[in-house]
Design a protein around this nucleic acid. Structure first.
Lengths: 131, 131
DNA sequence: GCCGGTAGTATCAAAAAGGATACCATGATG
DNA sequence: CATCATGGTATCCTTTTTGATACTACCGGC
């Protein structure tokens, strides 16, 4: 599934922008990235419980794509029951300024969305310091 | 068409990020925004010629969505032949830091895309100064 | 009278993304 | 022996997005 985001690059101005956007534009990717920024390392079901409305298939899906794109790392422990830990790669952590800029803009223009809450929550990712 | 990006806001962490992403994640939106940042004002067919591989339908489409989202302004001149000018709104211009961050990341990790050119082109938007 | 350029619409089809549901192996627990 | 939790797959279906193509009205130029 997916993988289309690699395919077209006429390389007009804005091409690398588009490329970067395509990596985070999955329906749940931002949320996943955000959690991983905040909590460093999470197991599959920990993520699932945090997101709640996501289906198992979609979580697997988004995680696989993020992994393929080199944004997150997947560590499998050969145990039973299985244990799989997800964390950001260096490349993933470098998205922080983007996520921050997006959040800043989103919070500033939250009125656009007929929205209410959320804007409040301050960003406190443990790893934001190192970027 | 579209409009779905308003619909779901479970408002988990990252929600406003997701909201912002959804506004620029159309297939051609970044390119359009980029050109408008660079050239301030462009007519429909001027944009079309610059993008080249876009279809008329998609250009109309993306422009309408950007307009609905308050990112660009559409100025119609009551003449024949018709003349319509597109430009960024203040809100649209505030996306600059986001686009810059995306471009920076994209250029830095351009290897991810099996890509070649593009990275070079420096950002020279006339309006970037005022942000 | 026909052609080109203006800025679009309308219609149909294909592809991609997302959702719902069921299923799997394993080991510990009861 | 049945059940729970782990981290997934597989299958089917619907919605969303994108693409291809044809069409419109108007005017000026040839």
């Amino acid at each position: 599934m997916a993988k289309t985001h690699y395919s077209r690059f006429d390389c007009q101005p804005g091409c690398s922008v588009e490329a970067a956007v395509s990596l985070i534009s999955g329906k749940w990717k931002c949320v996943v990235l955000w959690y991983l920024l905040e909590e460093e390392t999470l197991r599959f079901n920990e993520l699932r419980r945090r997101i709640a409305t996501i289906t198992q298939r979609m979580l697997t899906n988004q995680l696989r794509e993020l992994e393929t794109d080199g944004l997150i790392h997947r560590e499998v422990y050969a145990q039973v029951p299985p244990k799989v830990e997800y964390s950001l790669t260096a490349r993933g952590r470098e998205l922080t300024p983007i996520l921050m800029a997006l959040k800043a803009w989103g919070d500033a223009h939250i009125d656009l969305f007929g929205n209410n809450g959320t804007a409040g929550k301050p960003f406190t990712a443990a790893s934001s310091a190192e970027v």
